[in-house]
């Protein structure tokens, strides 16, 4: 793609920064693949645990409902964690792939797109952290109010 925008203050990607970006992109790919594997394992664990728990309690007739509800909640948490990991890994994968393409073909558009993926990944993880902190605060408030 043609480079139709001016270079900012004469800053360019030189040999050293290209090597650093290439290395970051390669490690990003490793991280993305590991994220997908971990996401898959978390999902698999949730499904297996749900099936095991529901099968164990089905025949016993003891506390079936609460066990099934607990297993279902655990499965939902596993699905949530898995989707968070997989989505985060997609951003990392896109950053790696596009940055690699940019460095191999000197395509400015791919470089911008790769950095945009990195930015989106950062925003995604920041939002996840904010939600996590809010949930923790709510849990602490709940514990504090139940004790008082």
């Amino acid at each position: 793609m043609e480079n139709d925008q001016p270079s900012l203050f004469g800053l360019s990607v030189d040999q050293e920064s290209a090597a650093t970006l290439k290395s970051a992109a390669q490690w990003g790919k490793v991280l993305a693949v590991l994220g997908w594997i971990l996401g898959g394992l978390v999902l698999l664990f949730g499904i297996v645990a749900y099936i095991k728990i529901t099968h164990t309690y089905r025949g016993s007739g003891f506390a079936v409902r609460s066990a099934e509800t607990g297993a279902l909640r655990a499965l939902i948490v596993c699905i949530l964690f898995s989707s968070i990991l997989v989505t985060g890994a997609i951003f990392t994968w896109n950053f790696s792939n596009r940055t690699n393409t940019a460095l191999d073909t000197t395509d400015q558009y791919s470089l911008n797109s790769g950095l945009s993926s990195m930015k989106s990944g950062m925003i995604f993880w920041a939002i996840i952290f904010i939600v996590f902190i809010l949930l923790m605060l709510l849990a602490f408030l709940g514990i504090a109010s139940s004790n008082s």
């Binding site: 480079n3 925008q5 001016p6 270079s7 900012l8 203050f9 800053l11 360019s12 990607v13 030189d14 040999q15 290209a18 940019a102 460095l103 000197t106 400015q108 470089l111 911008n112 950095l115 945009s116 990195m118 930015k119």
Partner: peptide, 15 residues
């Protein structure tokens, strides 16, 4: 820099 031809454009800077 001329060899690589990749620049830090305003869009890149924003990202």
């Amino acid at each position: 820099q001329q060899l690589f031809g990749l620049n830090i454009e305003p869009v890149t800077k924003n990202h």
